[in-house]
């Protein structure tokens, strides 16, 4: 088991890992300091509609005359917030269920895995759409929907590593000398799940951000006037031939964000699980 510091060091050594880390850091900075970096309020009309990018409005303005650059910055906040919270929901529920299913096996395992199979039986975006259709739109419900959709992958990942950890000799030894269930789980079994769990979480972040953007694009996620990249794009569609900057910049940021998390996830997987490296 590699320590956190060593993982970090190896990540920095890998050029792709470096790109991923720096990219994620920059994104977080953009999101956190959005109010300082933005030139205007994301919701105020500050100019002529559909002004082309210029010195004052770096990315141009949209059909309501709002500054696209400022909206992109606040959009980064929304994207990361939705991504982090929904993956947080999925990861914590998935972790607990995965540990229970993997450790106790038998009936409880079958029940949990059966529910997961049922959740897996839906194309993920469809399930997210369906859940928001019922819960209603808006940022919280989007987070809940994406969170629920992502639970099964975490359960499967954690369960699989718990089951393989149970077979490890030192876990068997700990069990045979009478270590109680809870300490056994926490001290000896859970650490084995960290590597696959972290990789899964990074990749889930990229897919959560993608799902949020898709849902907002369809009008089912974040609602205007909240600035979300997906909903900006959806509004911009009608004007894209006259004002291409209205679609180019949101797309650019969506793609770069997902790309960065994918790069980081791949590199993390290579560091934590060199077997899989090809």
């Amino acid at each position: 088991m590699k320590g956190l510091r060593q993982v970090f060091r190896e990540l920095v050594k890998d050029p792709m890992g470096r790109i991923g880390l720096i990219g994620v850091l920059l994104l977080i900075l953009l999101a956190v300091f959005a109010p300082l970096l933005a030139h205007y309020s994301p919701e105020k009309m500050v100019s002529m509609p559909k002004a082309a990018p210029n010195q004052q409005f770096w990315f141009g303005t949209d059909n309501y005359g709002r500054d696209i650059y400022s909206r992109i910055l606040y959009g980064a906040r929304v994207s990361l917030e939705v991504g982090l919270i929904s993956v947080g929901i999925a990861a914590s529920i998935g972790f607990i269920l995965g540990i229970i299913a993997g450790y106790f096996e038998g009936r409880i395992d079958r029940i949990i895995m059966c529910i997961m199979d049922i959740l897996f039986a839906f194309p993920s975006i469809l399930l997210a759409i369906f859940i928001t259709a019922v819960l209603g739109r808006g940022i919280e419900n989007t987070m809940i929907a994406i969170g629920i959709v992502n639970i099964p992958v975490f359960v499967r990942t954690v369960r699989a590593s718990v089951i393989s950890a149970k077979g490890l000799e030192y876990v068997q030894n700990a069990k045979s000398i009478g270590v109680k269930t809870f300490p056994l789980l926490m001290r000896h079994i859970a650490p084995n799940t960290i590597a696959p769990f972290t990789v899964q979480a990074t990749l889930a972040l990229s897919s959560a951000i993608l799902t949020e953007a898709s849902m907002s694009f369809l009008g089912l996620g974040i609602q205007p006037p909240d600035p979300s990249w997906g909903s900006m794009l959806s509004e911009a569609r009608a004007f894209m031939e006259q004002a291409p900057w209205m679609v180019i910049f949101p797309i650019l940021f969506i793609v770069i964000t997902i790309l960065i998390f994918n790069i980081l996830g791949d590199s993390l997987r290579d560091v934590l699980d060199p077997k899989l490296k090809t």
Partner: peptide, 22 residues
Amino acid sequence: ALMGVSIPSFALSILVILFLAL
């Protein structure tokens, strides 16, 4: 491949439509 897994279908659609139109 990395670009492919990172670009959402709606974003690619819009880019393609925009490119063909312009």
